[in-house]
Amino acid sequence: MTVPTTAPRPVLLKPEEAAEMLRIGRSKLYELLAARELTSIKIGRSRRIRPADVVAYIERQATAD
């Protein structure tokens, strides 16, 4: 029997998880979402963020200077 060495990567992140990835607070993450600097999708009443969108945001910030 083989034991997986890594957990499967999530397809979507909760806002708290995206904030943790960016090392920012939850309130700041919601500010970024409201300003449309970071994109998200809505499923029912829940907001979810694609990991690729977090990476794209980081890339934009890195080249903004």
Rank of each mutant, 00 (worst) to 15 (best):
Ala56Lys: 07
Arg48Pro: 07
Ser40Arg: 09
Ala56Met: 00
Ala56Arg: 11
Ile58Gly: 02
Ala62Lys: 12
Leu29Arg: 02
Arg48Ser: 07
Ala18His: 10
Glu20Met: 06
Arg45Asn: 14
Gln61Ala: 14
Arg48Met: 10
Ala7Lys: 11
Ala64Thr: 09
Arg50Ser: 03
Val55Cys: 00
Ile41Glu: 14
Arg36His: 15
Lys42Pro: 01
Arg45Ile: 08
Lys42Phe: 04
Tyr30Ala: 05
Leu38Val: 06
Glu59Ile: 12
Val54Gln: 03
Ile43Met: 12
Ala19Glu: 03
Arg26Asn: 12
Ala35Cys: 09
Leu38Thr: 00
Arg45His: 10
Ile58Cys: 11
Leu29Gly: 05
Leu22Gly: 06
Met21Arg: 14
Val3Ser: 09
Ile24Gly: 04
Pro10Tyr: 05
Ala56Pro: 03
Arg26Asp: 08
Thr39Phe: 00
Pro4Ala: 13
Arg48Thr: 02
Asp65Phe: 12
Glu20Ser: 08
Leu32Cys: 08
Lys14Asn: 09
Ile41Val: 15
Leu29Glu: 04
Val55Gln: 13
Thr5Lys: 08
Thr39Val: 04
Ser27Arg: 13
Ala62Gly: 00
Arg23Ala: 14
Leu38Tyr: 08
Ala18Pro: 12
Gly25Ser: 04
Asp53Val: 02
Gly44Cys: 07
Leu32Pro: 07
Arg60Asn: 12
Ile43Ala: 12
Pro4Phe: 08
